[in-house]
Amino acid sequence: MTRPRNARPAIFFCLMGYRGAERVAEALLTRADIDLVTLDPTTELLTHRGTPNESLYAYNPDDLVQRANAEALRRIGEASEAMRGGALRSNYPFLERAVVESLETTLLEALRRDLVAELVAVESLHNTAQQRDLRLLVVSEDHSRDMRALVQYARHLGIPSLQILHGVPVGPASPTFLISRTRQSRSCSISPMRMQAAWWCSPQDSSGGSSSAHRGSA
């Protein structure tokens, strides 16, 4: 996918359950000439504070969910066919037949439960990336269903992702701590020092920051 011309640079920003996320977002907007693309609950948090942001769903067609449902049904049918053909039995010959049958049932149930949401997440990022010059994904984790799907698709597009780990306090804490934690993130693909320059040394932080920033994240 080629980046759209004349689009302003944007960062996808979603720190779920991350105390102080709004301060990170506002520091990013202050320090860099970018727009923020967000996902709930971050969209709601920033909008409530009056911080400019745009939902990841903003560029989706009205019938996206309907189309994702049809696509999921088709793919679940193919997966079911593959399982009937012995895909799992050949994968795991050391498992009892009854166990494999239970696995097939459970995995198909999981697909019926989750596949539509995954398709919507990937399509939403695809639609946004066609309209906006997405430069980076900032996420608080990449193990839950939608975040992992988004990070994987961003990687496919060549867009780096940055995981800000839980437990990193957002506010006047030690930059050394931030850098050491950041280096552990396997999604991290920008220099920790650039992160520091972007928001860690913001002037308001040097005077102590807010009480919520002191409490840090969960």
Binding site: E71, R75, A110, L111, D114, L115, E118, L119, V122, H126, S144, R145, D146, M147, R148, A149, Q152, Y153, H156
Partner: peptide
């Protein structure tokens, strides 16, 4: 789908 195996995020 679009280069992502959607079984992995589950």
């Amino acid at each position: 789908h679009r280069g992502v195996n959607l079984g992995m995020p589950l």
